Simulated scan of single mutants.
Amino acid sequence: MAEPMEVGSRKEKVLTWTEKYRPKTLDDIAHQDEVVTMLKGALQGKDLPHLLFYGPPGTGKTSAALAFCRQLFPKNIFHDRVLDLNASDERGIAVVRQKIRTFSKMSLGAGGAPENVQKLKIIILDEVDAMTREAQAAMRRVIEDYSKYTRFILICNYVSRLIAPVVSRCAKFRFKSLPAEVQVDRLRSICDAEGTPMSDDELHRVMEFAEGDLRRAVCTLQSLSPILKSGDESARACYLRGSSDTKLISEVCKSIPTASTQDIFKLTRVITKSCTGVSFIRHLFQQMIDEDVINDANIAVMGKLVATCEKRILDGCDLENNLLDFLLTLRETFA
């Protein structure tokens, strides 16, 4: 959350739209009925296991954890009872030893185990799949040693990147991708609240650009807002086209089977400058399926190629080199 900013003689909180419109209660969490039901039960009962929330980005994992903690603890003790860390920023073993273990050891009073959930402390670890295996092993020990007073809510996109001893100590809940109508309704409510006019078709294009990530869609809306209010229709159309540039994708579909290596070098530079790599690859893959360029005979090979290139880019490898390798391999597949 942003720090208060001095404006004239008073202070205002300047928030990103993702924070401003983040669900505040469990009832505001959309399309995740199973986990919401469980968390509501924990609010009323005495039992709360360690939790593991996993699934696609922008589906409400962090929002559900924070909403639960806000409803569980009054404001005056919230910061004493809840530690919220992003493990992708602090991914080494040091953060486990210095922050997590220290917070877990802090006593909330004498006596035995707490008699109800309201007496526990909660540690929310976001993007825990970015932690090193050594840090995960150290965290497993902390979970074991301090489970009497502390519960962990672990959040990740890829549960396969966690070590088995950590996964086995948590109750797992998979967050489902949000349906298109849920996303568009949410985006529409934000547009109305901010006075940012957008048609249903434009909202669908923003949603498709975000590829199911509602947080990314809201960020796109906020960055687009000044352009929409300016009335510049050409800028509006250019921005909304984004990385789903159908003309460029169509050109690749038609030319790649017969393109020379030099042509592919030039095409790679164009794609790198105008598109987001992963988004472009996914849109290209979908269009090639729609046009029957990819069919039952080659879909397994193509699927593996797309997945490999996408993983390399998401892991931080050079975008241009990976796109070049992708297009050259794609050409060889159809040779």
Rank of each mutant, 00 (worst) to 15 (best):
A2R: 10
A2C: 01
P4K: 14
E6V: 14
V14H: 12
T18Y: 05
E19L: 05
P23F: 11
I29E: 08
V36S: 10
T37I: 01
L39K: 08
K40I: 08
A42V: 15
L43V: 06
H50I: 05
H50S: 06
L52I: 10
Y54M: 01
G55E: 02
G55W: 03
G58S: 04
T62E: 05
S63R: 08
L66F: 07
F68A: 10
N76I: 04
I77E: 14
R81L: 08
V82A: 11
N86W: 11
A87V: 04
R97K: 14
Q98P: 00
K99L: 02
I100T: 08
T102K: 13
F103W: 10
M106I: 13
G111R: 04
G111I: 11
I122M: 01
E127T: 07
V128P: 00
T132V: 11
T132Y: 07
A135Y: 07
A138E: 12
R141A: 13
V142W: 09
E144A: 09
Y146T: 10
Y146Q: 07
K148Y: 06
F152N: 02
R161H: 12
L162P: 05
A164T: 12
A164Q: 15
P165G: 08
P165F: 04
P165V: 08
V166H: 02
V167P: 00
K172I: 01
K172F: 06
F173V: 03
F175Q: 02
F175G: 05
S177A: 15
A180N: 06
E181R: 11
D185M: 07
R188D: 09
A193K: 10
R205N: 10
R205T: 14
M207W: 00
M207I: 05
F209V: 00
E211W: 00
D213I: 00
L214G: 02
L214H: 03
V218Q: 02
C219T: 15
S223C: 13
S225C: 13
I227N: 04
L228F: 02
L228E: 08
K229S: 12
E233Y: 02
A235N: 07
A235G: 01
C238L: 14
G242E: 09
G242N: 14
D245L: 03
T246R: 15
S250Q: 14
K254C: 03
P257K: 12
T261C: 10
Q262A: 15
D263T: 12
V270I: 15
I271P: 03
K273C: 07
F280G: 01
H283L: 11
L284K: 04
F285L: 08
V293K: 14
I294A: 02
A297G: 10
K304M: 12
L305W: 08
L305N: 09
A307Y: 09
T308Q: 12
K311D: 08
I313Y: 01
C317T: 11
D318P: 00
L323G: 04
L323C: 09
L323E: 06
L327G: 04
L330K: 03
R331L: 05
